[in-house]
Design a protein around this nucleic acid. Sequence first.
DNA 1: ATATGATTTAACCACTTAGTTAAACCAAAC
DNA 2: GTTTGGTTTAACTAAGTGGTTAAATCATAT
Lengths: 204, 204
Amino acid sequence: METKKDSTEEKILEAAKNVFVAKGMEGARMQEIADEAGINKALLHYYFRTKERLFEAIFSGIIKLAFPKIMTIVQSEASIVSKIEQIVDAYIDLLIKHPFIPGFVLKELNRDPSGLFKLVVKFGLNPQSVFDQIEQAMDRGEIRRMKPQHLLSNIVSMCVFPFAARPILSFILFKDDPSALEAFYNERATVIKEFVINAIVIKK
Amino acid sequence: METKKDSTEEKILEAAKNVFVAKGMEGARMQEIADEAGINKALLHYYFRTKERLFEAIFSGIIKLAFPKIMTIVQSEASIVSKIEQIVDAYIDLLIKHPFIPGFVLKELNRDPSGLFKLVVKFGLNPQSVFDQIEQAMDRGEIRRMKPQHLLSNIVSMCVFPFAARPILSFILFKDDPSALEAFYNERATVIKEFVINAIVIKK
DNA sequence: ATATGATTTAACCACTTAGTTAAACCAAAC
DNA sequence: GTTTGGTTTAACTAAGTGGTTAAATCATAT
């Protein structure tokens, strides 16, 4: 009996994820996906008629991983500082589990940004409400004044970029000790939270 | 008379840069490069025998833009805070002039990290000396204590990521006002410097 | 046993790609 | 005016690519 995990469809999705992540939509070959899944090309097309459809399935699956958790934090009742801490924790936690996401998403959104449009609509994302929350906290004197776009960019950059640039970090910062890279990623949440709080919280 | 700028070779390099940056090594087509350069495919191969060689010329040219300036700042005699400010200024200045670099470099280094190895050797890059400088400043109590790798990651992330994720910023943060994106990039250096200094400088 | 659906095999198509080649063309230098 | 080197044209190759097809196989449920 086959569990859902090793059904052919699951094997294909897993293989396709690996190949698409490693090679991108353009670089991925259907033959390679079939090989990685341990099946043949005919059966691969039998399940997912075209490369486009298969890619779409993978891509939307990856995106769905990231959005919902962030949204619930944003819409909660916590203080702005607490929300920032929660978002950093959630981001780093997700990225440690799925470190390939940033590189993959960046590559594909640069190739075809139209996918982003659909997603923003689909998830009903509204950045203005986030900007408002941040500006209200500044009005109350909780955090230093700066454009919300800059604050968000700073936080997301520090969370995401070290994963997008993993090969570079691995080589420049940790070329002698690869296991130190894992330790580094595990420290990120704590470091970023402290860094941001020192940067923006006004001490009384 | 032809200046060096509109010689055929220069036209090819310019066209190839545009196409490689937009489509990546895999996605770029020799025919498209030839069209963009206003010549034909035969002549393109006449100048650069293979796609590989042409790509190599473009890639190393782009990298050479970034490294040297950073190196001279690192090796100067300024204080650590001053060096950080100079590096942020230099990075943002470069990226405003060549905003495509981060996306391109990330994509190609994820595809084939071996190029990085050659570059590090070629430029004689030694991160340990940077780590030492940072740790000595911490010993002197100038800045808060943290692992140098984290500090460097934070700074570089905030400089580079918003350019790598340009389509995302453009859509999420500035979808109603595209010209605001340019203004945003022009503010980055000031914002990042202030942010970092607030985060790490110990006030007496 | 038979019917069904998953899977394999292997050939095939239409198309695109990088790269090559041979011939002609053209402008400027000699 | 002939040579030369950059340039075009147009055809070609060799090797992939995504995708299709038809037939055979295999396991399982009925």
